[in-house]
């Protein structure tokens, strides 16, 4: 199975909401669509699923244009919505039936999924009496009830408390294990880093980065040094030419130009009698990459993004 999105574009008036976005998924997993609010993630998803008309481009599943008629996909929109005055089980069965299931099968599947997500006790309750977090789980169930191969989740973690977020994390991992193709949009970079092997980064409708996350990061090399010591080593770091990035609660992060610089700094602090409790050389976080890319002029950043993917054909 393969999901292919080619040069999707959408313009509202004079504003280019999405400009020629392309990506591909040829194996089960989670694909990340990342960007700030208004970057064009939801518009991309809506075009991809045929909810809104695209100005140009194609979105195909196994070579066929994606639409509710040609394939069975699951979709959880960013704007959460359920029938507040209707019982949970009834509305889930309704959504299942709309996706072609019989009433009996839809009810059976609803109960099984409710059991799996721990909301079975609310089955006969009207949705407005269920907590916000559980309403969100019910919304997710509406996307999964008909067991689709392609699942599109628009900001699935927004508004979730830590316990429910962990539950959804676990579920997404299980779905990947079951061979599902998941496209997930998020503006939370840490979430995408956790799940996505491949991603597209959007900024003001433009693709500023795309490709395999590991390769993108590897392309940047080791740029950050995280140090925890008993005393303050910042003056020594500045002397050694390191740039202070951030002071965390009990550690300090510096920008380095390479491993040699980090090693020289390590020797310096040991000489100064500051034995490091933590010493970690790492690649930049996705958040840092995003900030860097978003700050660049569009044309330059886009060209560089092509280099950064280092030959990943998209």
């Amino acid at each position: 199975m393969i999901l292919t999105v080619k040069e999707l574009s959408k313009t509202y008036g004079t504003k280019k909401a999405v400009d020629k976005i392309s990506f591909e998924m040829d194996q089960p997993g989670v694909f990340g669509l990342i960007g700030t609010n208004g970057a064009g993630k939801t518009t991309t998803i809506r075009m991809m699923l045929g909810i809104i008309e695209k100005d140009a481009g194609t979105a195909e599943w196994n070579g066929k244009t994606i639409s509710r008629e040609t394939m069975s996909f699951g979709y959880m929109p960013e704007e959460r919505g359920i029938y507040t005055k209707t019982k949970v089980l009834e509305q889930l069965a309704y959504f299942g039936q709309l996706r072609g299931m019989s009433h009996v099968d839809a009810k059976k599947a609803s109960l099984a999924w409710m059991e799996r997500l721990g909301v079975i006790e609310y089955k006969d309750m009207v949705a407005e009496k269920v907590s916000k977090g559980n309403q969100q789980k019910i919304q997710l169930l509406a996307a999964l009830i008909h067991d689709p191969d392609l699942i599109v989740l628009d900001e699935p973690f927004s508004g979730l408390d830590p316990v429910n977020a962990e539950l959804i994390r676990k579920l997404i991992s299980e779905l990947v294990q079951e061979g599902k193709y998941i496209v997930m949009s998020s503006h939370q970079m840490s979430t995408v880093e956790e799940f996505c092997e491949n991603l597209v980064m959007l900024h003001n409708g433009q693709t500023i980065l795309r490709g395999n996350l590991k390769r993108i990061k590897a392309g940047y090399g080791h740029t950050n040094l995280l140090v925890r010591t008993v005393g303050d080593v910042t003056p020594l770091a500045l002397e050694a030419g390191l740039e202070l990035l951030a002071r965390h609660a009990d550690e300090t992060e510096f920008k380095i130009e390479g491993d040699d610089m980090a090693e020289a700094f390590l020797a310096k602090i040991i000489d100064a009698g500051q034995y490091p409790i933590k010493y970690e050389i790492r690649e930049p976080s996705l958040h840092e990459i995003f900030l860097e890319k978003a700050a660049m002029p569009m044309t330059a950043s886009k060209d560089e993004s092509m280099d950064t993917t280092m030959g990943v054909p998209i």
């Binding site: 699923l49 979709y75 919505g81 709309l98 996307a143």
Partner: peptide, 16 residues
């Protein structure tokens, strides 16, 4: 109600 409560987007991907 469906539009204001945003159920519409879930409906619209399921039915014409």
């Amino acid at each position: 109600n469906e539009k204001a409560s945003r159920v519409m987007e879930t409906l619209i991907v399921s039915a014409k």
